[in-house]
Simulated scan of single mutants.
Amino acid sequence: MAEVKYLVVLPTNPNESDRMSKMGIQGCLLQEPEQFSINFVNSPSCTDNITYHFKVRVPAQTIVENYKINGEWSDAHQEKYLNIFDGKSDKTMPSISSIINDGIDAVLHYSFTESTFSLEFQFDYNNSTIHVYQVRGQGHNFVTKFETLFSLSDIQSIQVWGDVQKITQFSLSYD
């Protein structure tokens, strides 16, 4: 069974005007990743209630959105074909001279698949929705919007699962 790779317990804010408005996360994936997910969980020690489950199936270029209530996943999950790894990365195509000098193996091991991700989750408490954006430099590309069953105020922790090698940045913004 898979295990939690990273867990962040959110600070409690008794003042409702100091609610989390954004959560940013950047990380690196393992080589040849299959999937990773980010769960917005209602208890740091129990995953029976998940307000929002955001999963990326990397080879299928699919995003799965769902929630869990009382230990049961919702049947109303959403799947969207959308590749947040669009092949743009800091890598450059090998030159002809390097292909000749390094042989065919250099070409076979080269991949345009990006191994990093940078996402921002924005919280709309009035409409109980989470907006997801891919972050590239100073730009934000809309990925998806998910209406939650639970109140966003119920989220107590964030868990990262799957083929994640490391988290390079994690940020919380409050109103």
Rank of each mutant, 00 (worst) to 15 (best):
F36I: 02
N83P: 06
F54W: 05
C46F: 01
E65K: 09
N101I: 11
D105T: 05
F40L: 12
I50R: 11
K80M: 15
T113F: 10
N83Q: 03
N39M: 05
D86K: 10
M93P: 10
L30I: 09
T47H: 09
E34L: 11
K55I: 04
Q122A: 13
K80V: 09
I84N: 00
L29A: 02
L30N: 12
D75K: 06
I100E: 04
I38F: 06
F85W: 05
E79L: 14
S118R: 07
N126L: 14
T116C: 12
S118W: 05
S37N: 07
S45T: 15
V58N: 01
N42Y: 04
F85T: 02
F121R: 06
N126S: 15
I50G: 01
E120V: 00
P33H: 10
D102S: 12
Q31W: 15
L108P: 03
V107W: 13
S115I: 04
L29Q: 04
T47D: 08
V64C: 01
S97K: 11
L108V: 07
Y81D: 10
I69M: 09
N127A: 12
Q31V: 12
S118L: 08
D86R: 09
V56H: 05
A106R: 15
F40Y: 03
I69D: 00
L108N: 10
C28R: 15
